[in-house]
Simulated scan of single mutants.
Amino acid sequence: MSATAEPETSAPEIPSAIDLREEFESSGVKDVLAELDRDLIGLAPVKKRIRETAALLLVERARKRMGLAHETPTLHMSFTGNPGTGKTTVALRMADLLHRLGYIRKGHLVSVTRDDLVGQYIGHTAPKTKEILKKAMGGVLFIDEAYYLYRPENERDYGQEAIEILLQVMENQRDDLVVILAGYSQRMERFFESNPGFRSRIAHHIDFPDYTDEELLEIARKMLDHQNYHLDQPATAALTQYIARRREQPHFANARSIRNALDRARLRQANRLFETSKGPLDATALSTISAEDITASRVFGIKTRSEAAHP
Rank of each mutant, 00 (worst) to 15 (best):
H230E: 12
L231K: 07
L231D: 13
D232W: 04
Q233I: 09
Q233W: 08
P234F: 10
P234T: 07
P234R: 15
A235R: 02
T236C: 01
T236R: 01
T236L: 02
A237E: 13
A237D: 11
A237V: 08
A237Q: 12
A237C: 04
A238K: 03
A238Y: 11
A238F: 12
L239W: 11
Q241F: 04
Q241P: 04
Y242V: 01
I243L: 06
I243S: 02
I243W: 03
A244G: 07
A244E: 09
R245K: 05
R246G: 06
R247K: 13
R247L: 02
R247I: 03
P250K: 08
P250Y: 08
F252H: 04
A253D: 02
A253M: 08
N254S: 07
A255I: 09
R256C: 11
S257W: 04
I258Y: 00
I258W: 00
I258N: 03
I258E: 03
R259T: 11
R259W: 12
R259N: 12
N260G: 14
A261W: 00
A261I: 02
A261S: 12
A261N: 04
L262M: 15
R264T: 14
A265F: 11
R266W: 05
R266K: 15
L267C: 10
L267E: 12
R268I: 15
R268F: 14
R268C: 05
Q269I: 02
Q269C: 07
A270V: 07
A270R: 06
N271M: 14
R272P: 00
L273F: 04
L273G: 05
E275I: 14
E275S: 13
E275M: 15
T276M: 11
T276Q: 11
S277T: 14
S277I: 05
K278R: 13
P280N: 13
L281A: 13
L281D: 15
A283Y: 10
T284C: 06
T284D: 15
A285G: 05
S287W: 00
S287R: 01
T288G: 03
S290A: 14
S290F: 08
S290H: 14
A291Q: 07
A291T: 05
E292V: 12
E292Y: 06
D293R: 04
I294C: 03
T295P: 01
T295V: 06
S297E: 09
V299E: 00
V299F: 00
V299A: 00
V299M: 02
F300H: 05
F300M: 03
